[in-house]
């Protein structure tokens, strides 16, 4: 009984945690290069509507995911242009991007409200692997391919960030852009690339929501997930592996908030994931200094050559 309970919860955790994980991985890269992007919610929902619209009109859900990635990337470029090239305030630009995304997607999505989608990315069961005790039931029965993509992506992005010269380049741009610049690194290019990657992953996360997780378009359907991503990025200390852990903790809490309703008041449960986010951030802020030092030093600071 308990066993089935835990397995069921963990399987749902993966399904709900996936868009959070994808968004967090992207935001980690963006922030590692020194650019905070508060537009995750906007990029995600742009991804969601473009994926749905594409899959609906072409009948090809994977093409939908591709278009979602492009849409997320284009939205991110708006932020990159404002915050890197024009050196605008990153917070303001990101917030504007979120509002823009929510508004535009609502407008474009009007014709797609209430339409069923026949071509979705449906869940799969992996033969052989499904027979692994416990793990098989959690991971390999009735899970979505995009869940696997996000899991595979995590160690790869972690490896690139910490074990390769590309990663060193990105991190040095985020830590000390002036030093990186004098070492011959093109700070703007690196930042553009990282912000772009963040947008692409957020777009895919949105696409997952509208054509895999729950195949339909509803205005505002990301429901604040983009904001959880911002909190998760800090919670993860800008490390992809910890991002995965954090995303799954959130996924579990959100699923549990319905599972535990017979025992705990629903209103309290609904607060749980957000209360956890606040507590986690407070703990990080007042805890040992180790985590704080992970924060990229020049986060939120536009780079101007020749100053400082």
């Amino acid at each position: 009984m308990i066993e089935a309970w835990v397995i069921g919860t963990l399987a749902r955790t993966l399904a709900y945690g996936t868009p959070l994980l994808l968004g967090t991985l992207g935001e980690i890269y963006s922030e590692r290069s020194g650019v905070v992007n508060l537009g995750v919610e906007g990029m995600m929902i742009m991804g969601a509507i473009s994926a749905f619209a594409t899959a609906f009109t072409t009948g090809n859900p994977w093409l939908g995911i591709l278009v979602a990635a492009i849409a997320g990337g284009l939205a991110a470029l708006v932020h990159a242009f404002a915050s890197i090239t024009l050196r605008a305030n990153q917070v303001v630009s990101g917030l504007a991007l979120t509002m823009l995304g929510l508004g535009l997607s609502g407008l474009f999505g009007k014709g797609f409200e209430g339409k069923p989608l026949d071509s979705t990315i449906s869940n799969v069961t992996v033969p052989l692997l499904k027979d692994i005790p416990y793990l098989g039931k959690i991971l390999f029965i009735d899970q979505n391919p995009i869940v696997y993509i996000s899991i595979v992506l995590t160690p790869i992005l972690s490896y690139i960030l910490f074990k390769t010269s590309i990663g060193i380049t990105i991190r040095s741009v985020g830590e000390n852009p002036a030093a990186a610049d004098s070492a011959g690194i093109n700070v703007w290019k690196v930042r553009y690339a990282c912000v772009l990657l963040g947008g692409v992953l957020a777009g895919i996360a949105g696409g997952y929501l509208s054509i895999a997780y729950r195949p339909a378009w509803t205005q505002g359907m990301t429901g604040g997930m983009g904001w959880l991503v911002i909190a998760l990025t800090i919670f993860a200390s800008w490390k992809p592996g910890r991002g995965l852990v954090g995303a799954y903790i959130f996924g579990a809490l959100i699923h549990l908030s319905y599972r535990l309703q017979p025992f705990v008041a629903p209103q309290l449960l609904k607060m749980m994931p957000y209360a956890f986010a606040i507590l986690a951030l407070v703990a990080l802020a007042i805890g040992p200094g180790k985590q704080k030092s992970e924060e990229p030093n020049s986060l939120m600071e536009p780079y101007v050559r020749g100053e400082k």
């Binding site: 749902r12 729950r214 429901g223 908030s257």
Partner: peptide, 14 residues
């Protein structure tokens, strides 16, 4: 709340 409705339904199926 489509995501919530999804998880609530899955929880009830469990």
């Amino acid at each position: 709340d489509p995501s919530g409705a999804k998880e609530a339904t899955e929880a009830l199926i469990e």
